[in-house]
């Protein structure tokens, strides 16, 4: 019994629904202040802090004329007194028209969507899913490339634990992509996702070499290589510098190449890339607002 109005994972949306969201987001980019949620209340329940995502959702609600209730940290909510997620969701759903939820535990959003009478938008459940990030990635790809079909996409960095790259593979599978997975051995793309590509006839190649490996790419999707993922810290020190993108590495790349990154970045993109017109990560973050306006409108039936 799945509430089809909730958005828990990108796999909940068909190709048509994804395209519908992207189309709607383009409308919000052209005209972000549309009071279609006037009189509506959206609860933002952040059981773990995520300032960027929360502000983006809250701005989206306010620009649509709705109001926001909620909390930004579990410490200030009744869950710190031991209230179950079930009780919190039931209580909040009697006040609000939709819930945007971030939770440190995986599966929390799916569970909430099963007990809540109002739509749940997953704003991240542990290392599992973050569908609004995936949709804004798709929006950024489409906007910079003029379409989503037949693109060369290079994914770089932590491909083992990075949930954004896993969701991106699932979402892009509708659009005949060709992938290049660029990662150190310790952080290689898991077999599960390579199998998914094979089953869906999506060509991919793997390499551990960053330099010159993305000259044919349309999209270079960078992720953070996190120190805590390594058992051997000397290995981390070696890898972290190899996987840093510098401006001079972009010389032989295609003119339409755009660099995406879910942010925050640490040292995987050198600041000298920021002024290169191929750098798109800051605009990408801004696109999150339009995507979240589109998601809120969809789940609330507008």
């Amino acid at each position: 019994m799945r509430d089809t109005k909730s958005l828990v994972t990108i796999a909940d949306y068909s190709k048509d629904e994804i395209l519908e969201i992207l189309e709607s987001a383009a409308g919000f980019e052209a005209n972000p202040n549309r009071k279609i949620l006037q009189g509506k209340v959206v609860a933002t329940l952040f059981f773990e802090p995520s300032t960027r995502t929360r502000l983006s959702f809250e701005t989206a609600v306010v620009r649509l004329g709705g109001s926001v209730i909620g909390f930004s940290d579990a410490a200030t909510s009744s869950s710190s007194k031991g209230e179950s997620l079930n009780d919190t969701i039931r209580m909040v759903s009697s006040y609000a028209d939709a819930i945007v939820m971030r939770h440190p535990l995986e599966g929390a959003a799916r569970y909430a969507s099963e007990i809540s009478p109002i739509p749940i938008i997953n704003a991240g459940d542990g290392a599992n899913q973050h569908p609004s990030q995936t949709l804004l990635d798709l929006y950024s790809i489409r906007k910079t490339q003029g379409g989503l079909e037949n693109l060369n996409i290079s994914l770089v960095g932590d491909l083992k634990y990075g949930r954004t790259v896993h969701s991106l593979i699932i979402a892009m599978s509708h659009f005949k992509p060709r992938f290049k997975f660029i990662a150190p051995d310790e952080l290689k793309m898991p077999e599960e996702y390579k199998d998914f590509c094979r089953k869906n006839d999506i060509p991919f190649v793997e390499t551990a070499e960053l330099t010159d490996s993305f000259n044919d790419a349309d999209i270079l999707y960078m992720t953070r290589v996190q120190r805590e993922r390594f058992q051997d810290l000397m290995e981390y020190e070696r890898v972290k510098n190899i996987y840093t993108l510098h401006d001079n590495m972009l010389e032989n790349t295609k003119p339409n190449l755009r660099i995406l990154h879910p942010l925050p970045r640490v040292n995987e993109i050198n600041p000298d890339v920021d002024s290169n017109p191929k750098a798109y990560y800051f605009q990408q973050a801004q696109n999150g607002l339009y995507i979240r306006q589109a998601i809120l409108s969809k789940v609330l039936g507008y």
Binding site: S84, N86, H103, L105, E106, G107, Y111, A127
Partner: peptide, 12 residues
Amino acid sequence: PNPNCITNHQAV
């Protein structure tokens, strides 16, 4: 088996 799964923390 995932210690971070909601089912290991709440009555699900």
